[in-house]
Simulated assay, not measured.
Amino acid sequence: MPSIPCHVISGFLGSGKTTLIRHLLDHKPAAERWAVLINEFGEAGIDQAMLPDASDIVVQALPGGCLCCQLAVTLKMTLVQLIRRHRPDRVLIEPSGLGHPAGLLEVLQDQDLAPVLDVRAMITLLDPRRLSDSRYLENQTFRDQLAMADALVVSKTDLATPQQLRSADEWLERRWPPLQWVEWVTGGKLPMERVLGASSRVGDIPSRAVDHPLPDLAMAGAPMLTLDMDVMPKPGETRVQRRTALGYHTLGLRWHPAQRFDLQHLSSALEALPEGCRIKAVIHAGQGWRILNNGDGPLKAEGTPWRRDSRIEILWPEDLVLDSEALVARFQACRTGVIED
Rank of each mutant, 00 (worst) to 15 (best):
P88R: 09
P88D: 07
P88A: 06
D89A: 14
R90V: 08
R90Y: 06
V91Y: 07
V91R: 10
L92Y: 11
I93P: 11
I93K: 02
E94H: 06
E94D: 07
E94R: 07
P95A: 10
P95S: 12
S96N: 06
S96A: 13
S96F: 08
G97L: 05
G97M: 11
G97H: 01
L98N: 02
L98T: 03
L98C: 07
G99T: 06
G99D: 15
H100C: 00
H100W: 02
P101G: 00
P101M: 03
P101R: 01
G103D: 11
G103V: 03
G103C: 08
G103A: 09
L104Q: 04
L104P: 05
L105W: 07
E106R: 14
E106I: 04
L108M: 10
Q109M: 15
Q109A: 13
D110N: 14
D110E: 08
D112S: 13
D112K: 05
L113G: 00
L113F: 03
A114D: 06
P115A: 03
P115H: 07
P115L: 04
V116E: 05
L117I: 06
L117E: 08
D118V: 09
V119D: 06
R120G: 09
A121L: 14
M122N: 00
I123C: 14
I123Y: 01
T124L: 07
T124V: 15
T124F: 07
T124H: 09
L126W: 06
L126K: 02
D127R: 07
D127K: 03
P128C: 08
R129D: 11
R129M: 13
R130Q: 14
L131E: 12
L131M: 12
L131S: 02
L131K: 00
L131I: 15
S132L: 04
S132F: 05
S134L: 12
R135Y: 06
R135K: 04
Y136A: 08
L137D: 12
E138P: 03
E138D: 15
E138K: 02
N139Q: 13
T141Q: 10
T141N: 02
T141M: 10
F142Q: 03
F142T: 00
F142M: 00
R143Q: 14
R143L: 12
R143G: 04
R143F: 03
R143A: 14
D144Y: 12
D144S: 07
D144Q: 13
Q145R: 03
Q145V: 09
Q145N: 04
L146D: 04
L146T: 01
L146V: 02
M148P: 08
M148N: 04
A149I: 11
D150S: 14
A151I: 05
A151P: 10
L152P: 03
L152E: 08
L152F: 06
L152N: 12
L152K: 04
V153E: 10
V153M: 05
V154F: 01
S155K: 05
S155E: 04
T157D: 05
L159C: 09
L159P: 05
A160P: 06
A160T: 05
T161P: 01
T161L: 09
T161E: 13
P162N: 00
Q163F: 04
Q164R: 10
L165K: 01
S167C: 00
A168T: 12
A168G: 13
D169M: 08
E170K: 10
W171V: 08
W171S: 11
W171E: 11
L172N: 04
L172S: 10
L172E: 11
L172M: 13
E173R: 15
R175S: 05
R175M: 04
R175H: 14
W176C: 10
